[in-house]
Nucleic acid binder design. Structure first.
Length: 486
RNA sequence: GGCCCCGUCGUCUAGCGGCCUAGGACUCUGGCUUCUCAAGCCAGCUACGAGGGUUCGAAUCCCUUCGGGGCUACCA
């Protein structure tokens, strides 16, 4: 088995936007495939047609692409074991269900939902492990015919033989389940549609999956999956190796969900997080490179990632750390990359429309804000002052430059700047320093603070002299005059 | 309730019997730098859930206990 070429799959059931936990799983699947030189398969598990929609499927594909987790086989790229969407493989599942029936590994069960619920209730009351009681296990042909004539639609149930299932989880070691606690489970609904339990196992076998890396929530369903492998004729050394990843938890220590934090990857995307930052941070949840290594590129991740270094304990999601990493990644961007990421945010915020002049100015301004933001969404606010048509100082800061001292600073500044020929930040700084600081004897933070408010409209801004250079001489002088007139 | 998984600073983690008076990162606090805000640099706070063993020696191995989580569907 070790010498088999690795094939791993990420198989979400898109019942909503892909969330952080899904992505962590996808990332590990991807990294493992890349690390081993194997194949990364992307499969859509949409057997629950009431919950999975086409929009969510399209969104999942888009999200995975955006993150840079390229798949080798799956939707839109194809592959020799497709289709990779379970709703398009119904005949395959039907075939295997019939085979299991023929082999007596599975049987028709006519119990209704109400009957089952009533019996489960009784089991709970009697303090017995709830689960299917095997009532329809050995129905005679006559019984079956009788039920059918009543119009009852049977489900197909897999028979769990006595005994136990033991498997070696790559992360947790040997795990064992007694079949007393693994009741006969449903493979096919009354309407003939397949259930996850059937579809995953069949697809993993048919798609030649060698390693199943998935969430810990599926750990206890593993015996059922193995049961299907066995019914398909696979022996232990032929079915996939399992590795159950620890959960990503929310602030309240429950599995991360909408209730306890932002879970949708799209939310992070819109909030201005870079895909590489999300992946880097997520990689650190439940895995570490060792040697105090934390900041890794996608490339490095594929080199360093091994299942041996994946944890068995759950990790809590920490937005602060994600932001810190995002800041690091933003600072590591080249100017052109940074520009590409910035433009959509500036346009969406209506700061720019996208003309060439605007883009040139953005490009010139980006270097001075690159180390000042942790999220791309902060860019519009920081650069707005360069583009606003009707410049106005915010209500709070405007009060701070109405006093005589501020007026004096602004008046002197204007006087110094009007004749200035070299409108570079260095020469602007030299002019203002010698006049305001040296000659007027003001403290830099006081003097430049007033100019900052007048020019940028805020007490917080990118470096002042660079900002003035970017704004241009006439606009800068106009703003100072405007402030002086208040 | 039953079954299963998990347990090192507030958080993510290093650690796989002696290198640990437990290291790093994020957060927080203080300082330096400084035209604001950041960034950067320095310093500080804080952890092996508890109790038993095994051993010359345990965060590391075993047991118990407590705590947290998952599953227990004609969801995945």
């Amino acid at each position: 088995m070790a010498d088999k070429k690795v094939r791993v799959r990420f198989a979400p059931s898109p019942t909503g936007d892909l969330h952080v936990g899904n992505i962590r799983t996808a990332l590990f699947d991807w990294a493992y495939a890349r690390h081993t030189g194997g194949t990364f398969i992307f499969r859509i598990e949409d057997t629950d047609t009431t919950r999975v929609t086409d929009e969510y499927i399209a969104a999942a594909i888009d999200t995975l692409r955006w993150l840079g987790l390229q798949w080798d086989e799956g939707p839109e790229v194809g592959g020799e074991y497709g289709p990779y969407q379970q709703s398009q493989r119904l005949d395959i599942y039907a075939h295997w269900a019939q085979k299991f029936l023929d082999q007596k590994d599975a049987y028709y069960c006519f119990c209704t939902a109400e009957e089952l619920e009533a019996r489960r209730e009784a089991q709970r009351a009697a303090n017995v492990a709830p689960g299917y009681d095997g009532q329809c296990r050995n129905l005679s042909e006559d019984h079956i015919a009788a039920f059918r004539s009543q119009g009852r639609l049977p489900v197909i149930r897999m028979r769990m033989p006595d005994g136990q299932t033991t498997f070696v989880d790559q992360i947790r070691g040997e795990v064992s389940f007694d079949h007393k606690f693994v009741p006969d489970f449903v493979l096919v609904r009354g309407d003939g549609s397949p259930l996850y339990t059937l579809a995953v196992a069949v697809d993993d076998v048919l798609m030649k999956v060698t390693h199943v890396l998935r969430g810990e929530d599926l750990l206890s369903s593993t015996p059922r999956q193995i049961r299907v492998y066995q019914a398909m004729g696979l022996t232990e050394d032929e079915y996939p190796t399992f590795a159950h990843l620890p959960f990503v938890m929310g602030q309240d220590n429950a599995k991360l969900s909408k209730r306890n934090g932002e879970v949708s990857v799209n939310w992070y995307r819109e909030a201005g997080f870079l895909p590489e930052a999300i992946c880097n941070y997520l990689a650190l949840l439940g895995w570490s490179a060792g040697e105090d290594r934390e900041n890794v590129t996608m490339q490095e991740l594929t080199k360093l990632f091994t299942v041996e270094r994946v944890h068995s304990s759950p990790a809590k999601f920490d937005m602060k750390k994600l932001e810190a990493i995002n800041g690091d990644k933003i600072r590591a961007l080249t100017l052109d990359e940074f520009l590409d990421w910035s433009l959509p945010f500036l346009k969406k915020a209506d700061v720019i429309e996208g003309s060439e002049e605007e883009i040139a100015l953005v490009k010139a301004a980006l270097p001075i804000i690159q180390e000042r933001i942790t999220k791309l969404s902060e860019i519009p606010e920081m650069l707005k002052f360069l583009f606003v048509k009707d410049f106005a100082i915010a209500p709070e800061p405007v009060e701070k430059i109405k006093d005589d001292a501020s007026k004096a600073v602004l008046a002197r500044s204007l006087g110094e700047l009007v004749p200035l020929e070299d409108w570079s930040h260095a020469s602007i700084e030299a002019a203002l320093r010698s006049s305001l600081i040296e000659e007027m004897g003001l403290k830099p933070r006081v003097a430049f603070g007033s100019v900052r408010i007048a020019v940028t409209g805020s007490t917080i801004s990118p470096p002042l002299f660079e900002s003035m250079e970017l704004l241009g001489k006439s606009a800068t002088l106009a703003r100072i005059s405007q402030a002086l007139a208040l």
